[in-house]
């Protein structure tokens, strides 16, 4: 199976450092920050680059502040482009 590459974006200002996402992460990618956010909480940071975008962290996050991204194995390419709309239409299939 091809390796899936994922990433997350955490709204650290709203993070309360509950650590539930740390426990939920199968890749052990997350850790508490050493710094505090403006509310005085330690917040979540991604420390490893092994995220698979499984969404577990976001699912258990009580604050709903984690966005998860996952790179699809195949880059989406348009299967067709339409050009010259004023005249004849030319269709090119790229696959």
């Amino acid at each position: 199976m091809a390796k899936v590459k994922g990433d997350i974006v955490i709204d650290i200002e709203k993070c309360k450092g509950c650590e539930l996402c740390i426990a939920a992460c199968p890749q052990d990618s997350l850790e508490l920050s050493r710094k505090l956010n403006s509310k005085g909480y330690q917040y979540m940071v991604k420390i490893e680059d092994n995220c698979t975008g499984c969404t577990n962290c976001a699912l258990v996050c009580p604050e709903g502040i984690i966005k998860v991204y996952r790179q699809t194995t195949k880059k989406k390419e348009p299967v067709a482009t339409i050009s010259n709309l004023t005249g004849d239409i030319t269709v090119t299939v790229n696959s």
């Binding site: 590459k5 990433d7 009580p62 604050e63 790179q71």
Partner: peptide, 30 residues
């Protein structure tokens, strides 16, 4: 890889951006 195309999870629109008053780790938020 953090592009709109690759986005697989974000909070739903109906959940407002207001920070919740719940204690850290409380199940209410989920």
């Amino acid at each position: 890889i953090c592009t709109t195309d690759n986005l697989v999870y974000e909070k739903p629109d109906t959940l407002l951006d207001t920070p919740m008053h719940y204690c850290p780790g409380c199940g209410h938020g989920v």
